[in-house]
Design a protein around this nucleic acid. Structure first.
Lengths: 128, 128
DNA sequence: GATAGCGGTATCCAAAAGGATAGTGACCAT
DNA sequence: ATGGTCACTATCCTTTTGGATACCGCTATC
């Protein structure tokens, strides 16, 4: 009762904060981009190749969005030809624990779902 | 280097897990429904009133979805008139730490964004 | 001179999410 | 009988999201 999440007033505040968080990381792609950049800076086409299913248009949009939100930095080298890399900012470290937790939860959830559908099938078999 | 998130093979697995997680909790509403149910079972219209901006159509859809995913349970009393309540399942406890973390992160992120836009305005003033 | 890679854009389109508004049938209170 | 609550559903519509495909100027390579 004192872990802070049960009290009514905290719930309202929490709804606001979670709304903010969901707004910033929404969509299918942003966290995946962060994950691929954790290993170090990557070039546009490298990112495109390591996230299966993403198109250049979408990746471009996500990167711009994430730059505005302060998660990634776009770096142009002064070589010729110009080379562009994207890297995480120190700020995006704050996302790391979110990712670790979501990943762990996603793993557990997948087995949970499999388990549920397995039981459903068993039940169907027993109905006959 | 040994926290498990830096190694290439782990990143690929992590992308899959995070995809699963995002798929299950996607949209603006699901986590907010969980939050309002943390205090205890609630009736349809109560939930509708405590989540600002949600419409009955959307809430109805979300609740069905969450029932299928095993997060909530729909309970009809056998009184007359029938009374319907929704409550969290034990399984949805696993979402609690996700919510706590996202909420904390959302709070920090909001101040981060405010800070960034404040600085931008300051910079603009100094340009003149 | 053809082809390929780079870092993207442009255009078009389909699907999904979500909002606005209204309505339904069962009940209940006045 | 009138109006209200409850738990939704129906219809319509707009916005958002994202997928397909093609293309661009530039460079590097064969």
């Amino acid at each position: 009762m004192k872990d802070g999440i049960h009290r009514q007033e905290d719930c309202l505040a929490r709804i606001g904060s979670v709304k903010d968080a969901l707004y910033a990381i929404n969509g299918k792609w942003k966290l995946l981009v962060v994950i691929t950049l954790i290993d170090g800076p990557r070039r546009f086409n490298e990112i495109e190749r390591s996230i299966e299913g993403i198109t250049p248009k979408v990746l471009s949009k996500e990167l711009k969005d994430m730059e505005l939100n302060g998660f990634v930095k776009r770096i142009e080298s002064h070589t010729n030809p110009v080379q562009v890399t994207y890297e995480l900012t120190p700020y995006s470290d704050s996302l790391r624990e979110v990712i670790v937790l979501l990943s762990a939860w996603g793993t557990k959830h997948r087995t949970h779902i499999l388990e549920m559908s397995r039981r459903e099938n068993t039940a169907k078999l027993m109905d006959k």
